[in-house]
Design a protein around this nucleic acid. Structure first.
Lengths: 194, 194
DNA sequence: GTCTATAGCCTGATAGAC
DNA sequence: GTCTATCAGGCTATAGAC
């Protein structure tokens, strides 16, 4: 998948690299799509574990949320092809089974919890715990990743022009959902007047 | 490309739908990759024209920039497969020729000009005209698009959970590059200062 | 659980008649 | 500028021997 595109996975090539013949694979997987499903399931699980571990190591709230998403970005860049399988839809005929998809649902819950904790800690206003805020955050990480993967496919997370900007984006969240409940844009001069 | 993925384009299928036989296509294109290149060139040109027209109709600065990027988003959602060909890299063996790529360079210049105008108009601080700001904006539009395309592939621009959030993201730019030159909120004196 | 053999499809590309 | 015929190869998947 890394070399030929996610779509380029073929059982024949898998067999070739395993040193077996294609029919042997059918003892383990009933079809090519079932191989994609197994890849999806394992990748989703690995990605979720990495993200949760990073969040658990930081204090709940924006710091944990950012740590989790940074770890997510790191994993995605390190496993580009699998990340594409998870988050883009490069194989139109493939849709993950409910079992394989389960970790993805759990991941959304992690984000939701991170935002809710941030609201509870007073880092964000009450709107910071809405679905809209989740979508906003998902746009930020997805944008950083897609730009990094498309334009700097060989650079690790943390290098290059895009991934270092992610913390800067996260730092804008309090401007979008101000803790004092003031309306969005560049809420008055405040904050700095100490 | 829409039906089978960008990678799924085949000369045989093109010929089939044109009502001719595959060898006939070789009178017009020397190879499959040259077909991709022609598709890329036309799409890049069409996308650039749409974006520039939208920017020309708005007053220079943040309004024009947002109008241009909104038009870009609209075009990308309306022409998903072509947008993927332009902005993701779904066909590893294909790289656009310099001629085909030229409009993409011009597009970056449009963004640069939009930000420079915004700084000149006092909408953003001087940092708003840096390369970093361009990358930040590109992350915003790329994130909105990739989330919309991956999760709501059948909804038009303006509908759904993601594309309506793009203006909200653009509205955060003045918080990232404050016009009065003040450092980004809560970056200097810290959150305890206020 | 591996293999050979094969069916039945697809592809990109070329040669050469008309 | 279209066609027929063809090459040379790819692929998924199955049947059945060992």
């Amino acid at each position: 998948m890394t070399e030929e595109g996610v779509n380029g996975l073929s059982l024949a090539e898998v067999a070739r690299r395993l040193g077996v013949t294609p029919p042997s694979l059918y003892k383990y997987f009933p079809s090519l799509l079932s191989v994609y499903d197994a890849l999806y399931a394992r990748a989703a699980r690995a990605h979720l574990d990495v993200m949760r571990a990073a969040m658990d190591e930081s204090e709940p709230g924006l710091r944990a949320l950012e740590a989790g998403l940074m770890a997510s970005g790191h994993w995605c860049i390190e496993h580009r092809a699998r990340a594409q399988l998870l988050f883009w839809r490069p194989v139109p005929s493939f849709e993950p089974s409910p079992d394989a998809f389960a970790p993805s649902v759990e991941m959304m819950e992690l984000n939701r919890k991170g935002l809710a904790d941030a609201v509870a800690a007073g880092e964000l206003g009450p709107d910071g715990a809405t679905d809209e805020a989740i979508y906003l955050v998902s746009i930020m990480i997805a944008g950083t990743l897609s730009q990094a993967m498309a334009n700097e496919p060989d650079l690790p997370w943390g290098d290059g022009r895009f991934s270092p900007l992610f913390p800067k984006l996260m730092a804008l969240l309090p401007a979008a959902y101000p803790p004092d409940g003031k309306p969005t844009r560049r809420s008055r001069r405040g904050q700095s007047g100490g």
